[in-house]
């Protein structure tokens, strides 16, 4: 057991210093960090087994993978799938639609989650606070299939309650589900409805850690409500906000598949097609796992660059970053 830990630690310790580590230093490091390294061991094993070992399978992005032939047995095609993807005539439209949806999520859904958490935090009555918290997180548990069919019901032409209401207010006679102009608002609306309450949980956990004495001291100093939020509450969740923001930039090309697929139809497809739905059609329905993997790989590289980039930016502004 001990040798295993040491081996792990050497390889782990080796890469912080470019020059070959001195024997004595390695030993000292090992002894000094033995408990920490021991604690981390199961996690390291997990990542090696279940996260990195399967990655040898990513080579199917460069092959024409047929499950029956196995990974090595499938034909090597090099960059072919990547070329097909980037030269595809729909590529600019897919990119545009994907980025717009990602931006809406980043600039609308994400801030709303923070606002909601702050508002919940300001509720005084504990019973009310808990009740509202429980209510708003319920939608998270309904699958997209259910959410989309409920949307269909609410916006049903002729008798849907929201269809009636919105058309009365706007003085129109629109089928919101088919109108390309309404596609993105509906997607954001569903996303906000389903996930905002759930998203507040992380912030509320952070807020639970705020030292109550700080508030008391601020009150005695005569700080108002807004000042307390600005100077105590927000700073205490700032690092959580930044971490979530950094992680979200890495997901910018992942819009999710199910919601968009279920909400798209013949009349709104020009705005609804995104990378994830495209991969579903081309990769999964047409049985081309290789193509789907190639697109996944391309997206991952962009995601990694974005995460490292925003993390670097965060550090430049003296924030903590994720690592």
């Amino acid at each position: 057991m001990a040798t295993l830990i040491e081996a792990e630690a050497v390889s782990g310790g080796a890469d912080i210093t470019p020059r070959p580590p001195n024997r004595r230093n390695v030993r000292e490091t090992l002894v000094r960090y033995r408990w920490l390294l021991f604690l981390m061991l199961p996690g390291i094993i997990y990542f090696l087994l279940f996260r990195f070992w399967p990655m040898y399978g990513a080579q199917i992005a460069f092959r024409d993978y047929i499950p029956f032939l196995g990974i090595e047995g499938s034909q090597w095609v090099g960059w072919e799938h990547f070329e097909t993807f980037f030269t595809n005539p729909d590529f600019p439209r897919l990119l545009r639609n994907t980025l717009i949806l990602a931006a809406l999520s980043l600039f609308i859904a994400f801030p709303l989650t923070i606002v909601m958490a702050l508002l919940l935090n300001e509720l005084r009555l504990n019973i009310l606070k808990r009740t509202v918290q429980t209510l708003v997180y319920v939608p998270h548990f309904l699958s997209w299939t259910v959410v989309v069919s409920l949307t269909g019901l609410l916006f049903a032409v002729g008798n849907g309650p929201l269809w009636t209401l919105l058309n009365d207010v706007l003085g129109t006679d629109t089928n919101f589900l088919a109108d390309p102009a309404w596609f993105r608002p509906l997607i954001v609306l569903q996303d906000v409805w389903k996930n905002t309450g759930w998203g507040t949980i992380i912030f509320l956990a952070a807020l639970a850690g705020v030292d109550q004495e700080q508030y008391e001291a601020a009150i005695i100093d005569g700080a108002g409500r807004w000042q307390r939020v600005w100077h105590i509450t927000l700073p205490s969740i700032r690092s959580t906000i930044i971490v979530l923001l950094i992680l979200q930039t890495g997901q910018i090309l992942n819009t999710g598949f199910e919601q968009i697929y279920l909400m798209s139809n013949a009349l709104n497809r020009t705005v609804a097609d995104v990378f994830d739905t495209y991969v579903y059609f081309v990769g999964i329905q047409q049985g081309s796992y290789s193509y789907a993997t190639a697109v996944g790989l391309a997206k991952a590289i962009v995601g990694v660059i974005l995460i490292f980039g925003t993390n670097w930016l965060a550090k430049r502004f003296n924030q903590q970053g994720i690592f």
């Binding site: 399967p54 990513a58 499950p67 990974i71 890495g250 996944g296 997206k299 991952a300 995601g303």
Partner: peptide, 12 residues
């Protein structure tokens, strides 16, 4: 972070 962005997929 890399494993968060890229997963090898179902079959592997």
């Amino acid at each position: 972070v890399f494993t968060m962005v890229f997963s090898a997929g179902l079959i592997p």
